[in-house]
Design a protein around this nucleic acid. Sequence first.
DNA 1: CGCTGTGTTGACTACTGTCAACAAGGGTGG
DNA 2: CCACCCTTGTTGACAGTAGTCAACACAGCG
Lengths: 250, 250
Amino acid sequence: MKPPTSLAAPLLDIPALRNSCSSCSMRQLCLPMGLEQSDMQRLDGIIGRSRVSRDDTLYRIGDKFNFLFAVRAGQFKTYQVSPDGAQQITGFQMAGELLGMDAIGTGTHQCDAVALENSEVCKIPFVRLEELFATIPALLRHFHRMMSKEITREQSVILLLGNMGAEQRLAAFLVNVSSRYEARGYSGTHFKLRMTREDIGNYLSLTIESISRLLTKLKKDGMINVSNREIEIIDLSALKMLATGSNVCG
Amino acid sequence: MKPPTSLAAPLLDIPALRNSCSSCSMRQLCLPMGLEQSDMQRLDGIIGRSRVSRDDTLYRIGDKFNFLFAVRAGQFKTYQVSPDGAQQITGFQMAGELLGMDAIGTGTHQCDAVALENSEVCKIPFVRLEELFATIPALLRHFHRMMSKEITREQSVILLLGNMGAEQRLAAFLVNVSSRYEARGYSGTHFKLRMTREDIGNYLSLTIESISRLLTKLKKDGMINVSNREIEIIDLSALKMLATGSNVCG
DNA sequence: CGCTGTGTTGACTACTGTCAACAAGGGTGG
DNA sequence: CCACCCTTGTTGACAGTAGTCAACACAGCG
């Protein structure tokens, strides 16, 4: 509901953050995955790093597309805005994930990207990345994999919105977040959500009241513990069962 | 509800269809867009053409990914299958559109693709396409645009499922189909749907009963004429208004 | 000509939304 | 340091949209 903060907020280049990809803990998940040392350095050479404060907008619908962004630390949300002005969150991005791929087709950003907490991003000039593609085939292949996985991810959101009931959606969301924390070396059973109930509800296309009630229900059913944004998953397999269980509507 | 026909149905290579991209009416929309004659011929050199009969499966979830497919004629649907076996159609593909991009990330197809009518596809071996990328930058750039637009397209499906009411969804669907027919040189106001009500309902996450009732309503309201799958759009701008009009839920 | 798949219409149901009141947390300023 | 305020989250009562179930109509096809 609150208007995004001004885009004018500059993205500072921070020399201290000029750590190379090779020293980044996300290099297994991120763009440089599988690159040789020398190629990784060439990639490094075109990448800048910036900080983005909580609630700041990384880019906005209609902005000219010049950079892809990789989340280095923190989390983001991306949302579409429908013609009537309503938002629809299309994804939450964690460290190692790429932002802005939807802008390549038109040269213009197709969604807003907003930081959920104080974050750091790698700023990748797309034209220079394209130059590297010509001489680093492994980079190109992995870039294609990342774009393709973004397509797959969105398909599973479509599946979620199209075929799942409210409880199943929330369970699927929690399981998804859990696995992503785990893939990043954090606990998959005890974590803090970075987004509000409103964001979760918007993403899952449920009201905050429903989110609240359903979290309470999952707690009562002994699957999770909730305290504000602190989540503890008590019975992950039960939660997975719930997320993948039946409940058709389409 | 009916099980897809056997994948064993062979995709026949048809010499008579070996028309080059340069003679294809879809070349402005499809992969070879913007290529010079010589590059288009090189692309042609790796592409095979095949027929796919109505209700036949082009590929299936779990199939090894070797080929991208471009729809040359006819129409397809792609659907995910949720763990409980329910289908969710994620898109309808028309001539000039690419199928299989979601398989690049894993090397395995992530959805089923089924022909809605007797169709023809161009069969593009992905490894050979990757070889061409190295020497035809324009081809690579356009491929990126097509992948990116697939991401954008899915985002708008997410928006549709997440933020729109039933009537708005159907209106948006009709407007979308209309514009795609028009882009292909057909009438945008008078066309025949190639999919059943069940497919439409599945795609929009509505029941066939709702589709039926809503088509009747749009007809009563003087926006369209319907007779079975024959659609005539009487008031396109009103339909667009409806599709983009307010009706929030997320 | 009847059968089967597809589409239409009506009556009833239920899931999730809406509205409203209240509670709790976290920041800010006195 | 504490009080206050505003945002965020919780809970309950009620409502509405779209789903479910069921009967029927129509078309295409053998």
